[in-house]
Design a protein around this nucleic acid. Structure first.
Lengths: 260, 260
DNA sequence: CTTACTAGG
DNA sequence: CCTATTAAG
């Protein structure tokens, strides 16, 4: 059994001041994937590197930083020793610290921060290149007979039930036809959105805008954070969860339990 | 009798959130000179423009803004109608909103924000040009048979009793030989540092660094804010005060009562 | 609105 | 340390 959590923390240093370490200790996860750490190597503290887990042991961690200060960045906390940890290996994405890729032998876990397509789709092309790179990566792992888990902030609400105001957001970043079409392609190849696999109910979101007044308390949100897995892992999915009660970021954590 | 107050507010918008309007209403001053307003015309609110005075009337106000956003800037609140309000009229100082010059007929009141000479005296030349422009301005007013009051943040501690740690600050911005020498020249021409005129005691400061831990509660400060007047006003000086209990900025307000 | 950044003090 | 700025989300 493996337990994974993923959380876009919207600045790890800010999250640290809002109980991040307590949350880590409460998850009892084997893997914790973070996005938008918004820091660089020299800004990491010992607490960030090796937080205490629920089992009384400290996590090992692996980090991928953007070259630009205070921007993007991903991380992975793990209880298990990976065989290797890398990134997607594509310059334009590695430059922004968009992935941590950890190889555990029978499965590969990716902490991924998909680009925001921005106002007027200014960065849509970049985002779609990232999406396609992720898909190709998954297909390669799958072809090698291993499993793959893509955890993170996809910055895409896939279908109308994945955001509170679908009509009002037609054409907005995160709900563009091109982004949704890529999710169609991804799931069309058999990859499984684990939360949606187990729950067809609307109203479950993982992100609420800070800009809209009281969006979170009114639950005017979007489901942007996912654990997706390769088709062959379908029967292994035991739990896929959203934790909207966890505060400290404009996103909330999502969880996955796999019986592998 | 005229009552003036001067305060470097270190950002008027921040000060507004820390009781600035209550302070204005409590001063019962005819004139309030501000420095480091750190805003521009379009960022002014009605409350900032016309705060309520202790007499139940609203002040009129005059503003001088830096062309650079969020930088420097001076203002004058007044109960009396000035004949005219201008600035020093020198491009390099007007560009930074360093003075408001109000003509009341028998006297001219200046709200002045003297430049900081910066690390390694990087801006010392600029500052000394400002200082000399102020002195020349005063001499012109004086020659015309009128009085002049220069209220504001001089960014200079004149003598060892004007800062808590004179030895440690030899050669530091605000206590450079050139800055102190200009104060010698200014007072040598007869201009009166009204506070020092009435009080020879050390330990009275108007600024405490935010950078040094607990500087204000330990009273490790500098006297940088002054009301200076022309020599002929000497006999009219009734009160010159420092108000270290007023919080909301790294500076505190200073007051002057003149019997004219 | 919030988190970073940077400049200035 | 604190107040602004700007970029990004």
């Amino acid at each position: 059994m493996i337990r994974s959590c993923s959380w876009n923390v919207n600045g790890l240093r800010a999250a640290m001041g809002k109980g991040f370490l307590d949350w880590v200790a409460s998850t009892d996860a084997d893997f914790i994937c973070l996005q938008e750490t918004k820091l660089q190597e020299e800004q990491l503290t010992e607490d960030m590197r090796h937080p205490l887990g629920a089992d009384g042991r400290r996590y090992a961690s692996f980090w991928s930083h953007a070259s630009r200060k205070g921007y993007a960045g991903t991380a992975l906390y793990t209880r298990r020793d990976p065989l290797s940890v890398t990134t997607l290996g594509i310059q334009e994405f590695d430059d922004e610290g968009r992935t941590v890729v950890a190889d555990f032998g029978d499965f590969v876990l990716v902490s991924a921060y998909f680009p925001n397509s921005q106002e007027a789709g200014a960065r849509l092309d970049y985002k779609l290149r990232f999406c396609n790179a992720i898909l190709e990566f998954c297909e390669r792992i799958r072809a090698s007979g291993r499993h793959v888990i893509i955890a993170g902030d996809y910055n895409i609400a896939h279908t109308p039930i994945d955001l509170a105001r679908p009509e009002q957001n037609e054409g907005n970043a995160g709900y563009l036809p091109e982004e949704r079409a890529w999710m169609d392609t991804f799931t069309g190849r058999g990859y499984i959105d684990t939360f949606r696999h187990l729950c067809r109910e609307p109203g479950h979101y993982t992100w609420w805008s800070y800009r809209a007044p009281k969006a979170r308390e009114k639950n005017i949100g979007w489901r942007l954070d996912y654990h997706c897995v390769d088709p062959e892992l379908g029967p292994a999915i035991r739990q896929a969860t959203i934790h909207p009660e966890v505060l400290g970021s404009d996103h909330c954590p999502v969880g996955l339990v796999l019986d592998i």
